[in-house]
Amino acid sequence: MTNHDEAATVRPLTLAWVRRHLEPGERIVGAEALHGGATADMRRLTVGTRDGGTRHLVLRSFVDPTRQGPAEDLLHREADALTTLTGTGVRAPGLVAFDPVAAHCEYPSLLMSHLPGRTTLHDEGLETRLPLLARQLAAIHTVRPAARPREYVALSTADTVVVPEGADAATWAAATDVIRRPAPRYEGRFLHGDFQPGNVLLDLPPEDPAGAGAGAAVARITGVVDWAAASWGPADLDVAHCATNLALLHGPTWGLRFTEAYQDAGGTLAAAADERLYWQVRSPLAFSEEVQWVAQPWWEAGRHELTTRAVEERLDAYLTSLMDAPG
């Protein structure tokens, strides 16, 4: 088996487990580390087929503890989500197998099909990609699972907020007071839990890799990955999470525009302005606790201008814009 880099090496027990889930006559002929993930080691496995061709699988392994909870819980949630999405209009990987307690592998792992496309975090072409993202998220929220996933859990609280250096303390205090109130009542929806550009695969014209220019009109989403945080809760939560990511990646205005685009795509948010604000500010306040962790994958993807300090400044500007927005 050929490894494209040392990080792609698959441990012996895990390799044997993967082989047991291949078709007769198939073999693993290569492995490549997939970068950009923040919660698990990801590898793309090349499988040689009986007819001499190849296909790909993706292996997710939780090597280290995560901020999101036990690996067993995350893998069960992802496996359930992938099963739920089979046959829906939402393109997601197909579940092949999972070992949530590392009964067969060195680490808790999940094996799934590989989707075409790639992520893009460039500023160029965002005008075209924004409505694609909004329509995709609205489609996810129309999924009605036979068995509901677990209710969302807010991992951050008003007491864990970290005010960035130089931010207006009064603005942050006012935003923090918003989430001290009980969460508004909501109509539940099937949530991705981490919907953002880094988890959306795109087919972009090869002559226009950033998705800009005339060719960008044919850009399309080929799939959505990383369903380990799937849950049941308010659509506002997913929208706010993606909007915050866009604000930090591309500037505060894009966070506000995504919320509008989601509604233009037919998505429904909380009816009352104070309820919408609750969900809108909860996301950037949660990001304040882990700015460095959030920025690291973007740096590794080539966005070297997004230093921890630069992301903190955008976070402050975005939160301020939310608090200043008319009701």
Rank of each mutant, 00 (worst) to 15 (best):
residue 2 T to I: 13
residue 8 A to V: 05
residue 8 A to F: 05
residue 8 A to D: 14
residue 9 T to A: 12
residue 10 V to Q: 14
residue 11 R to G: 12
residue 12 P to A: 09
residue 14 T to W: 05
residue 16 A to Q: 12
residue 16 A to C: 09
residue 29 V to S: 15
residue 31 A to G: 10
residue 33 A to G: 15
residue 36 G to F: 14
residue 41 D to C: 15
residue 41 D to Q: 15
residue 49 T to Y: 00
residue 53 G to C: 08
residue 55 R to P: 03
residue 55 R to Q: 12
residue 59 L to M: 05
residue 62 F to D: 03
residue 64 D to C: 11
residue 64 D to S: 11
residue 66 T to W: 10
residue 67 R to Q: 05
residue 70 P to Y: 02
residue 72 E to K: 00
residue 73 D to K: 02
residue 75 L to C: 04
residue 77 R to L: 00
residue 80 D to R: 06
residue 84 T to M: 04
residue 86 T to Q: 05
residue 88 T to I: 05
residue 91 R to T: 14
residue 92 A to H: 07
residue 96 V to F: 02
residue 98 F to V: 02
residue 104 H to Q: 11
residue 104 H to K: 05
residue 105 C to K: 01
residue 106 E to R: 12
residue 107 Y to K: 09
residue 107 Y to V: 07
residue 110 L to P: 03
residue 111 L to G: 03
residue 112 M to P: 01
residue 114 H to F: 10
residue 114 H to P: 08
residue 115 L to N: 11
residue 115 L to S: 12
residue 118 R to E: 10
residue 120 T to Y: 00
residue 122 H to N: 01
residue 125 G to T: 00
residue 130 L to Q: 12
residue 137 L to S: 09
residue 137 L to A: 10
residue 138 A to Q: 10
residue 144 R to G: 04
residue 147 A to W: 01
residue 148 R to Q: 01
residue 149 P to H: 03
residue 150 R to W: 03
residue 153 V to P: 00
residue 154 A to G: 11
residue 154 A to N: 15
residue 154 A to V: 15
residue 155 L to V: 14
residue 158 A to V: 15
residue 160 T to R: 14
residue 161 V to G: 12
residue 163 V to W: 04
residue 165 E to M: 00
residue 167 A to V: 04
residue 167 A to E: 03
residue 171 T to I: 15
residue 173 A to I: 13
residue 187 E to C: 05
residue 196 Q to M: 12
residue 197 P to L: 09
residue 197 P to G: 07
residue 204 L to E: 00
residue 208 D to A: 11
residue 213 G to E: 00
residue 215 G to D: 01
residue 215 G to M: 04
residue 218 V to P: 04
residue 221 I to N: 09
residue 225 V to N: 08
residue 229 A to H: 10
residue 230 A to W: 02
residue 235 A to R: 07
residue 237 L to T: 06
residue 239 V to E: 11
residue 239 V to H: 07
residue 247 A to G: 05
residue 248 L to Y: 06
residue 251 G to W: 02
residue 251 G to T: 06
residue 251 G to S: 04
residue 253 T to E: 07
residue 254 W to N: 06
residue 261 A to C: 12
residue 261 A to I: 15
residue 262 Y to C: 14
residue 263 Q to P: 15
residue 264 D to Y: 13
residue 264 D to W: 15
residue 269 L to V: 09
residue 271 A to V: 08
residue 271 A to L: 13
residue 274 D to H: 13
residue 284 P to Y: 08
residue 284 P to N: 07
residue 285 L to W: 11
residue 286 A to G: 13
residue 286 A to P: 05
residue 289 E to A: 14
residue 290 E to N: 11
residue 291 V to Y: 00
residue 296 Q to D: 12
residue 301 A to P: 07
residue 302 G to L: 06
residue 307 T to I: 13
residue 310 A to I: 03
residue 317 A to T: 12
residue 319 L to S: 11
residue 319 L to P: 09
residue 323 M to K: 08
